[in-house]
Simulated scan of single mutants.
Amino acid sequence: MQATPEWNPPEGSWASSAAIRRNMQAIRSRDTKPERLIRRLVHAQGLRYRVAARPLADLRRTADLVFRPAKVAVFIDGCYWHGCPEHYVSPKTNTGYWSGKVAGNIARDRDTDQRLAEAGWAVLRFWEHESADKCALLIANTVNDRRGKSI
């Protein structure tokens, strides 16, 4: 039987093992299943948008869908990464780091909402577990209202 070599994480990595590091690397930051489903439904309603784009050039944050002329930014937030009040479960390992990370994400989300609102944007946030049909309908209604059209 061959001995498993000791795992030394790369510089700056918070992963506690090679398996956890591989798992973390596999987590998508865009094109998740909920995003793709909502995009397909919105596109089917005849709306066109930018994907993973910055609503404001000077703001280093991207929205999942951006409707620039209508000034609508859509975010589909993951329950774990954004602290869903219904589904967030604190991690069992490295709790200090991960709890702080999620709290920082929540604070950044609120800051993003405020900055976009101040710039005249409508911000729509959905949880990944919400009905894609309802999300797409609300997105279409908001975009069309801001464009001065009705469905």
Results as ranks from 00 to 15, higher is better:
residue 76 I to N: 02
residue 57 A to K: 00
residue 73 A to L: 12
residue 47 L to N: 14
residue 50 R to Y: 05
residue 78 G to Y: 01
residue 50 R to A: 08
residue 50 R to D: 05
residue 57 A to E: 01
residue 51 V to P: 01
residue 53 A to Q: 07
residue 78 G to M: 06
residue 92 K to N: 11
residue 75 F to H: 08
residue 58 D to Q: 01
residue 89 V to Q: 14
residue 62 T to C: 07
residue 69 P to Y: 13
residue 83 G to E: 03
residue 53 A to I: 00
residue 88 Y to Q: 07
residue 49 Y to N: 10
residue 63 A to P: 03
residue 60 R to G: 10
residue 69 P to F: 15
residue 51 V to F: 00
residue 71 K to E: 14
residue 50 R to L: 08
residue 73 A to H: 06
residue 85 P to L: 09
residue 67 F to L: 13
residue 47 L to R: 13
residue 67 F to E: 10
residue 81 W to H: 07
residue 65 L to D: 05
residue 66 V to N: 05
residue 50 R to P: 03
residue 81 W to G: 11
residue 48 R to W: 13
residue 88 Y to A: 10
residue 73 A to Q: 05
residue 58 D to L: 06
residue 67 F to A: 13
residue 57 A to I: 04
residue 52 A to M: 01
residue 49 Y to A: 07
residue 80 Y to I: 12
residue 57 A to L: 08
residue 78 G to P: 03
residue 83 G to Q: 06
residue 86 E to V: 05
residue 85 P to A: 10
residue 52 A to Y: 06
residue 68 R to C: 09
residue 58 D to T: 00
residue 51 V to K: 02
residue 90 S to A: 14
residue 48 R to M: 11
residue 82 H to N: 11
residue 56 L to I: 14
residue 67 F to W: 09
residue 85 P to I: 04
residue 77 D to W: 00
residue 92 K to A: 11
residue 57 A to H: 01
residue 59 L to E: 08
residue 65 L to V: 12
residue 77 D to P: 04
residue 68 R to G: 11
residue 53 A to P: 00
residue 63 A to M: 11
residue 58 D to H: 11
residue 48 R to F: 15
residue 86 E to S: 10
residue 82 H to Q: 12
residue 89 V to P: 08
residue 76 I to L: 07
residue 76 I to C: 04
residue 64 D to G: 09
residue 73 A to M: 08
residue 61 R to D: 07
residue 67 F to V: 09
residue 58 D to F: 15
residue 78 G to C: 08
residue 76 I to M: 04
residue 54 R to M: 10
residue 76 I to S: 02
residue 60 R to A: 15
residue 77 D to S: 09
residue 82 H to E: 06
residue 83 G to D: 02
residue 55 P to N: 04
residue 73 A to P: 15
residue 81 W to F: 00
residue 77 D to E: 09
residue 87 H to F: 03
residue 71 K to I: 06
residue 74 V to W: 00
residue 72 V to K: 14
residue 83 G to P: 05
residue 77 D to C: 07
residue 92 K to S: 15
residue 73 A to Y: 07
residue 47 L to Y: 00
residue 47 L to V: 11
residue 70 A to N: 14
residue 91 P to M: 08
residue 50 R to H: 08
residue 72 V to Y: 12
residue 51 V to C: 01
residue 74 V to Q: 03
residue 64 D to I: 12
residue 62 T to Q: 07
residue 83 G to R: 14
residue 49 Y to T: 08
residue 57 A to C: 04
residue 63 A to R: 02
residue 89 V to A: 13
residue 53 A to D: 12
residue 85 P to E: 14
residue 76 I to G: 02
residue 74 V to C: 01
residue 77 D to I: 11
residue 78 G to I: 11
residue 66 V to S: 05
residue 78 G to T: 10
residue 57 A to V: 07
residue 92 K to H: 15
residue 52 A to E: 02
residue 88 Y to R: 05
residue 47 L to H: 07
residue 80 Y to L: 03
residue 85 P to N: 07
residue 48 R to L: 14
residue 74 V to K: 00
residue 81 W to Q: 13
residue 60 R to S: 15
residue 70 A to V: 04
residue 76 I to T: 06
residue 63 A to T: 06
residue 64 D to A: 08
residue 67 F to Q: 14
